[in-house]
Design a protein around this nucleic acid. Sequence first.
DNA 1: GTCTATAACTAGATAGAC
DNA 2: GTCTATCTAGTTATAGAC
Lengths: 199, 199
Amino acid sequence: MEKGGRPADNSAESTETRILKVATRHFYDRGYHGTTMREIAADCGMKAGSLYNHYTGKEELLFRIANDTMAELVDGAQTAVDQGTTPAQRLQGLVRQHVRYHAVNRLQAKVADDQLHALSQDRQAVVLKIRDGYERLVEEVIADGISEHGWAVADVKIVAFALLTMCTAVGTWFREDGRLSADQIADIYTDLAMAMLQP
Amino acid sequence: MEKGGRPADNSAESTETRILKVATRHFYDRGYHGTTMREIAADCGMKAGSLYNHYTGKEELLFRIANDTMAELVDGAQTAVDQGTTPAQRLQGLVRQHVRYHAVNRLQAKVADDQLHALSQDRQAVVLKIRDGYERLVEEVIADGISEHGWAVADVKIVAFALLTMCTAVGTWFREDGRLSADQIADIYTDLAMAMLQP
DNA sequence: GTCTATAACTAGATAGAC
DNA sequence: GTCTATCTAGTTATAGAC
């Protein structure tokens, strides 16, 4: 499978990264408050006290997951927008990347979406600010499509929300061993998105 | 406001109903595991121990919320299907009722969707079975639209999910004091839904 | 960097007086 | 049907040995 010269040494994954992955799975399955540090530690092959050598506490784990996820989403979206030359191309790129990300990284995406209430106000605000910027990016592309292509949009904000939440929800039912791949689903969703906008 | 001869006696609301409403608000804000019986009791004007005169425990509160919500959704959907005479009418009725319900009852709808993991396996299965029936109802209407109207649907299951999750998400951003009413939003969403299906 | 032990606290649920 | 008091268990986080 490996193409490069680098050995497939999975143990190279840092302890910090492994803890985040395990915490993500637990927060996804049982929620932030339903997960204990003991359970996370056990799945990492250590005791609860040892986790505090890597993170200051449970809340920092959630913050890192949510913050990293949002940052990755914005990065991908900005790339998609930069690569498109027309509003249609940019929107298709946005939808494709959003659907693919929420399918491939469905655990962390759902945790980042649903568990924000468990963060302190300050940390919550940091994550929400990134998310607001993301939504504005989508709204701008839709607004461009209206003025340049005459897209039929009853309300930019509502349609942007409808579009994004439809794509976000892919993460709630997508399964890695399911009937369709993330790419196939992204194809269907880009078509649905364009159908929602055609005059 | 009251039209009938019955007095507007809000205290007629039973203690059981009030407890459920308060619990719904808390489960929505902080999640099931993030909510304590003491908090629910305080908002009901009683002490934690008193709650157990009305419900056997915390989990029963969540089960009642989730089960009642799903039952109401299925009822509304069945009515919408029965009242339509064509697949297009039935689908529009389904979308309208689904959007309206998730806007008007957004707290309980979100709790019923997001907190199922906290239920025992048996109780979870009860709720999921109702939800499965609901989804099949939508898939059938879409299948009818394909054969009778030639709707353009790449994949019935995927499009049914896309449609339903898009409408469900209205509950995550709808606000009672927002710019648009639940009915106005339902109008926009029925149009979006039909646009997604047109050949 | 992991362990054991423990501090300090909070949870759901119950018993029995009123 | 509500109260107070309490039980039992489990929580995050820390301290200090190794």
